[in-house]
Structure formats: C-alpha cells, structure tokens
Simulated scan of single mutants.
Amino acid sequence: MKIRVPATSANLGPGFDSCGIALSRYLTIEIGPETRTWQINHQLGSEIPSDEKNLLIKTALDLAPTLRPHKITMISDIPIARGLGSSSSVIVAGIELANRLGNLGMTPQQKVAYATKIEGHPDNVAPAICGDFVVASYNNNEVNFVEHTFPDCDVIAFIPDHELLTSESRGVLPKELSYHDAVKASSIGNVMIAAILNGNLPLAGKMMERDILHESHRQHLVPHLKKIRTLCKTYGGYGSFLSGAGPTVLVLTPPENTEKLVTALKGLNHEALIDVLSIEREGVQIF
C-alpha cells in the first residue's frame, strides 16, 4: 500500500493561517512488511529520523498506539523548510497510516481536525487532506473548512537554495493590529476569496499582493519577493505571494505567459529552483 500526500501553499497573501492550495509535488509512503521495530528508509538526510522518532510514526502512534511496526519507504520531492508544507505532508501521511493500518475509519473532518491540532493551523493540512483550494478556520478548538475548485492556471514556484524556518519567519510578526488595519486586512482577504470562487484570477492576484497581515513584516527575510512581484507584472502574471512562511514565492500565471516568466525568474537567481506546478485536485490518496 502507498500513501501519497501533495505539497501545499498556505496563506495566499491575505488568507493568513486560513487559505491554502494543494500543489503537484508529493510525499509518498510505501508500507512494507511487518518488522520488530519501525524502519523508515529515506534519502532525506541524516537529520530526519529513520525509526519511531520520525514525525510520520509519532503522528500515527499518537492516534493508534497499538499499531504493529512496519518497514516503510519514504520518498519526497517537497523541499524542507521552503514554505511548501513539507512537515504538514508528513503529519497527514501519519494520520492516514494510522487510519489504514488501525482501521479507524476517519472522516475528512476528523483528519483535518486532528492534523490542525498538531500543526496549530489548518491552512497547510486541510488542502493536503482535501486537495485543491481550502478555506478554513480554527477557533475555540473547533475546525471548520470549505473546499472549492481553484481556477485553472500555472503556478510557478521560485524556490531559493536556502531554508527559512517557520519559527524564524513567525518571530517577526506583530502581536497586535489596530482595529483599522484588522478591518482592512479582512476586506482584502474577503475580496481575494470571492474572486477565486468567481474564477477571477486577475482580481484575486491583485488582492494577494495587498496583504498587510504578514508579508510586509517578512519582506526583509525574503528580499526576492519584491523583485519577483515586479517581474510578475511585467510579464503578465496574475499575482505573486509568499508561500507559507517562505522563502518560496509562487507566481500565478496564464499558461501562455509561463515561459516568459520562467526565463525572467531564472535570470533573477541562477541558484534558485524554478518549477512549474499545477493545482493538485486530489488530496491524500491511497494506491
């Protein structure tokens, strides 16, 4: 049995800790035979545990403590600490591992709720479970979410060759907002979501670039964001935004403008990875 979980991008600008999309990069878990102890075979680096200390197994055992150990192969093309949901994908895979091996019969609502409690917010885990575009809230220990189809477009990922830990990126955010700024931020996010639901990507992209909740406070950590935003406007993209906590920046564009934007982005930083992705319509899948 194989479990496949898509990468995700959280926030989409003003949808901070609430909005997310699933993307066409993946974590794949192949479940092998039972063993005496948990064995995780991977090529993700020595800092990633290969036993029961792995986040995958810790998550699964929290849900189903009596699971029998298995040999597991873990393959991921989701870069670590780049703002593309690498840790969320492991949490979601761990939940599905427990769900399948433990015959838990969990619903999508239960999976999203449990994953959110672990992650702290639903914007990455919800689209990893459900796929496509998800808007979610986590208040008073209650998770509510809505799935919807994201309009067709190309998603160009500008992935720098350095990490940016979520803890560092969150550390620069303000503890409070004025009432005026809170209303402004809410209106920008509301219009962005409404534009997505209406299939109006030019307006959605415009709103994504007007976020005041987090991007303005993180710009000094991601100096390439402003340059990418200029290139996006110049070469016909819909809009650009910081993916999660960064440092990856995503550019939404009509397919006919993708090649021009990719060329321009490659000229910005030859060491960054430029990858053309698509919206993944399915969330976690079993093969």
Rank of each mutant, 00 (worst) to 15 (best):
M1T: 09
V5Q: 06
V5T: 15
P6W: 02
A10I: 06
L12V: 08
P14S: 01
F16S: 06
F16A: 13
F16H: 14
S18Q: 13
C19K: 01
C19E: 03
I21Y: 01
A22V: 08
A22R: 01
L23T: 01
L23P: 02
L23E: 00
S24E: 07
Y26M: 07
L27A: 05
I29E: 00
I29H: 00
E30Y: 12
E34I: 10
T35G: 12
T37V: 14
I40E: 02
L44K: 10
G45C: 11
G45I: 13
P49M: 06
D51L: 11
E52Q: 15
E52Y: 05
N54R: 08
N54M: 09
L61M: 11
D62C: 13
A64G: 02
R68K: 15
I75H: 04
I75R: 11
D77I: 10
D77K: 04
A81F: 09
G85E: 02
G85S: 09
S87Y: 03
I91L: 13
V92K: 00
G94F: 12
G94M: 14
G94H: 05
R100T: 03
N103A: 15
L104G: 00
L104W: 01
M106S: 06
Q109E: 13
T116H: 00
E119N: 11
N124C: 07
A126Y: 10
P127A: 05
A128G: 03
I129M: 13
D132Q: 07
V134M: 08
V135A: 14
Y138I: 08
N139F: 09
N144K: 14
H148P: 03
D152R: 08
P160A: 01
E163N: 12
L164E: 07
T166G: 12
S167G: 01
S169V: 06
G171A: 10
V172A: 10
E176V: 02
E176Q: 06
L177E: 00
S178R: 15
V183Q: 07
V183G: 13
A185L: 09
A185I: 13
I188G: 00
I188Y: 00
M192P: 02
I193M: 11
A194D: 11
A194Y: 09
A195I: 02
A195T: 01
I196D: 03
L197V: 12
N198Y: 14
N198V: 07
N200M: 15
L201C: 08
G205Q: 01
K206N: 15
I212N: 08
I212W: 06
E215V: 14
H217W: 11
H217V: 03
H217N: 11
Q219F: 02
H220K: 15
L221R: 10
V222R: 04
P223R: 09
L225A: 08
K226E: 14
I228V: 12
C232Y: 02
C232H: 00
Y235I: 04
Y235K: 02
Y238D: 07
S240G: 10
S240R: 08
L242I: 14
S243C: 07
G244C: 08
A245G: 06
T248Q: 10
T248C: 07
L250C: 15
V251I: 15
L252K: 10
E256Y: 08
E256I: 11
N257L: 04
N257I: 04
N257V: 09
T258I: 12
K260P: 05
V262K: 08
T263L: 14
A264P: 15
G267Y: 05
L268G: 11
N269L: 06
N269C: 10
E271Y: 05
I274G: 00
R281I: 05
R281E: 09
E282W: 06
V284S: 00
